[in-house]
């Protein structure tokens, strides 16, 4: 995919650039809310905003199918199950628990994250990225489907097995906890 457009589309390209900045701002602001919010439900909402922003960036990268899958899987399934878990396991406020330890954790987290960002960011900027000379496959949905069911069919089946085991295991884990609570006589 080459990012060149006809001259009469100049205005549209400008609008697309502005919308691109909007998606980046949504991604980063949602991420900041997701890791910084006091209330857990606000963190989940920030995560949803960030995931929608990433889906918009996938559209800019020319892959609408992955963007749709991002919204379906992450926003539609993962975030909704997170909301259910937040409602089932009511957490106390994070910040009130242990103030001193919390400050230490925030400091160490900020230092480690900034260090990692600095190192990787320098590598990203300094490295000369080389484009592939020829494009073998354009990456249409048909080609992705053929790739999934021919070259990567083993991984595809393995992922389906992992999902089956994960869903069964999560049902068993959550159900056993409920049985314990009932035996102790303290229902939720």
């Amino acid at each position: 995919m080459d990012f060149t457009f006809a001259t009469e589309q100049k205005f549209l390209v400008l609008i697309a650039d502005i919308a691109f900045v909007g998606f980046i701002v949504a991604t980063l602001f949602g991420g900041i809310v997701a890791v910084g919010a006091r209330q857990l439900i606000h963190a989940v909402l920030g995560l949803i905003m960030s995931l929608m922003g990433v889906a918009g960036l996938y559209v800019y990268l020319g892959n609408h199918f992955i963007a749709a899958m991002q919204i379906l899987i992450y926003v539609g399934a993962v975030s909704i199950s997170m909301v259910f878990a937040v409602m089932l396991a009511r957490p106390p406020e994070d910040a009130k628990a242990k103030p001193l330890m919390f400050a230490t954790k925030i400091g160490s987290g900020a230092v480690i994250a900034l260090f990692a960002a600095f190192v990787v960011g320098r590598a990203v900027i300094a490295h000369p990225w080389v484009k592939a000379a020829t494009v073998v496959k354009e990456g249409t949905i048909r080609q992705i489907g053929e790739n999934l069911l021919t070259t990567n069919v083993f991984v595809f089946e393995l992922i389906s097995l992992v999902l089956l085991v994960a869903i069964t295991g999560s049902v068993i884990i959550a159900k056993r906890g409920r049985d314990n609570t009932d035996q102790q006589g303290g229902g939720v």
Binding site: T27, L28, G31, I32, A34, V35, G36, S50, V54, F102, K105, I106, S108, G109, A110, I112, A113, L114, A116, A117, V120, G121, V124
Partner: peptide
């Protein structure tokens, strides 16, 4: 990279 750093910060803190 910003997403990764935010996630790392949140995972630790």
């Amino acid at each position: 990279l910003c997403l990764f750093a935010l996630g790392l910060y949140g995972l630790i803190s």
